[in-house]
Amino acid sequence: MPANPETDTFGFIVNDLSRLIRAEMDRRTTEAGLGLTTGEGRVLFNVRRAGPVRQTALAERLGVEAMTLSGLVDRLEAKGFVERQPDPADRRAKLVTLTEAGATVVTKIEPIATAIRSEAAHGIDPDDWQRLLVSLRAARANLIANRAEALAGEDAAA
């Protein structure tokens, strides 16, 4: 694909990479008979990483609306991969917890994700790849900090 200065910018490239990764994950998890969407897989990985987590915090972490997450969790719960449990600190809130079956399916997804990352890094010097990851983490941290500042400013103005 020829370079296009309008679409070879940071935002376009990151969005294209995200779309390509999601499509490839969907294709490979379907081929593997896992019956999961990329969104469902992201929920499982994030619950494993966070441990029992409130649905509201999980939605924020994933960058999705609460209703979108609710649908994902409903489907995962029906498959036996997660459970909703009352939050001992707030009876109105629910904690999403990974089940043993959910942990098993995450271990089946890991090699698929590893292969896709390896293919993405193909032909890139390992040191350059590590620098890219460091730079992307810094860009993410910058945007998170800017968002937090903007939200704090909105709260102060209200």
Rank of each mutant, 00 (worst) to 15 (best):
47 V>T: 10
57 A>Y: 08
79 K>G: 04
68 T>Y: 10
75 R>Q: 07
76 L>P: 10
55 Q>A: 13
73 V>Y: 11
48 R>L: 01
49 R>Q: 13
51 G>A: 08
53 V>E: 01
69 L>A: 12
67 M>S: 08
52 P>V: 11
50 A>N: 10
67 M>W: 01
46 N>F: 06
73 V>L: 05
72 L>G: 02
70 S>T: 08
57 A>P: 03
68 T>A: 15
55 Q>L: 14
73 V>P: 09
45 F>P: 00
64 V>L: 13
75 R>M: 05
46 N>Y: 05
57 A>R: 11
55 Q>W: 06
69 L>W: 10
49 R>V: 00
72 L>N: 09
48 R>S: 01
46 N>K: 14
57 A>F: 03
50 A>I: 06
76 L>M: 04
61 R>L: 09
62 L>G: 09
69 L>K: 04
47 V>E: 07
74 D>V: 06
62 L>R: 12
66 A>I: 09
76 L>F: 12
52 P>N: 05
52 P>E: 14
77 E>A: 15
60 E>K: 15
46 N>L: 12
67 M>A: 14
56 T>E: 09
51 G>W: 03
61 R>S: 13
53 V>R: 07
48 R>Q: 09
68 T>L: 13
73 V>D: 04
70 S>V: 01
65 E>C: 00
58 L>P: 12
55 Q>R: 15
47 V>D: 07
61 R>I: 00
76 L>R: 12
71 G>D: 13
64 V>Y: 03
58 L>K: 10
66 A>D: 14
72 L>R: 14
77 E>Q: 15
63 G>A: 06
80 G>D: 02
49 R>P: 00
73 V>C: 03
56 T>P: 00
